[in-house]
């Protein structure tokens, strides 16, 4: 692209303003003559490409922070972000990708050491609805998904998404038949559930019942291998996070949860087995095991001990061996006292 823009010494703010005008044009219903429209759309794509070049630099030059700040300021001074996001379906593939990268980059731009994107999104939080629903559209999913993941870097935005009705839809998005889209949704879901610790802990304690009911039935007991595997891994990450300790204690006191995890332990997939172990060990290590949990563990004691005896991972892992030894000790020492 070099040399293309050399003759036009426009400021970054100029580029933003011109992009905005073109976006407004593109949004209008296509009643004007087609040829003119094509021309304008081509110009819009060029402008978006230039925005990207300013923000990321190109092969010849690094981005200039002053230019980036100007661009960002102008971008959020008016409603350009919303316009751009709404117009993505009207762009060609290359411009869609450029737009995605522009939106992603803007989330991290600081103006006077302030993330103004965060303030903008807080005031325009409904944009998130558009982005999340993108997972339902095969053509938009990867673009909107990538933008969404960048936006939930802002804690307030993540909180909104977690508490919105959209949260339930993720359980379906994760299992969409298109692998690339399902994987993208899973990455976003994981980001939501792990990035902002206090927000996540707060969300889980308030929404414990429906969330884990869905998590268990739709993800951990899914017929889809990859869903189960990702879900059990993420569950381990969530429960082992110190900020979620209250949630963890609650989770490992449920006999239904234990049953699901024990089924995952019996899977023929080594990877799932290992991830399941990292959750199962929490049930075993719990020092205040409810009687029914103890009951199940005692009833399955010999089977569990046999399983763990041959339970090895390919790579040597001291922590894993130590955990295993402790789980075995716990189970071996169990007495079904309260049941008798």
């Amino acid at each position: 692209m070099k040399g293309l823009f050399k003759s036009k010494p426009r400021t970054p703010a100029d580029v933003v303003r011109q992009t905005r005008d073109l976006l407004i044009y593109a949004q209008r219903s296509p009643d004007s003559r087609e040829s003119k429209r094509e021309e304008k759309m081509a110009e819009l794509c060029k402008n978006i490409r230039e925005l990207k070049c300013i923000l990321y630099g190109n092969s010849e030059s690094e981005p200039v922070s002053e230019a980036c700040a100007q661009l960002t300021q102008e971008f959020f001074r008016e409603d350009t972000l919303r316009l751009l996001i709404m117009c993505v379906p009207k762009l060609n593939l290359e411009a869609r990708k450029d737009a995605t990268q522009v939106v992603a980059n803007l989330q991290r731009q600081q103006v006077h050491s302030k993330l103004i994107a965060s303030d903008y999104l807080e005031a325009n939080i409904d944009i998130m609805d558009v982005l999340i629903q993108g997972y339902g559209d095969t053509d938009m999913a990867l673009h909107y998904g990538a933008m969404l993941r960048e936006c939930i870097r802002h804690q307030s935005v993540a909180r909104y998404v977690l508490e919105s009705q959209h949260m339930k839809k993720f359980f379906d998005y994760i299992q969409l038949p298109n692998f690339d889209i399902a994987a993208d949704a899973a990455a976003t879901f994981k980001e939501l559930m792990t990035r902002h610790k206090s927000t996540v802990a707060d969300f889980l304690s308030k929404n414990y019942d429906w969330f884990f009911a869905e998590y268990n039935s739709k993800l951990l007991e899914s017929s889809n291998y990859i869903t189960r595997r990702q879900a059990v891994k993420l569950l381990g990450d969530i429960l082992l996070d110190r900020s979620n300790s209250a949630v963890m204690t609650r989770y490992v006191s449920s006999r239904d949860n234990l049953r699901i995890l024990m089924n995952l332990l019996r899977e023929s997939s080594k990877s799932i087995q290992i991830e399941a172990f990292h959750v199962f060990k929490l049930f075993a290590a719990n020092q205040n095991k409810p009687a029914d949990i103890v009951g199940i563990l005692v009833a399955n004691r010999s089977k569990l001990l046999r399983l763990f005896a041959d339970f090895k991972i390919d790579k040597e892992d001291e922590q894993f061996e130590a955990d295993k030894a402790q789980v075995v000790r716990e189970i071996a020492a169990l007495e079904p006292k309260e049941l008798s």
């Binding site: 593939l93 990867l142 692998f179 690339d180 994987a183 993208d184 899973a186 990702q230 891994k233």
Partner: peptide, 14 residues
């Protein structure tokens, strides 16, 4: 985890 595959398939479809 599947990030590598996610990125490969994403790259290939975009």
């Amino acid at each position: 985890d599947f990030d590598a595959f996610r990125r490969e398939t994403k790259t290939m479809s975009l």
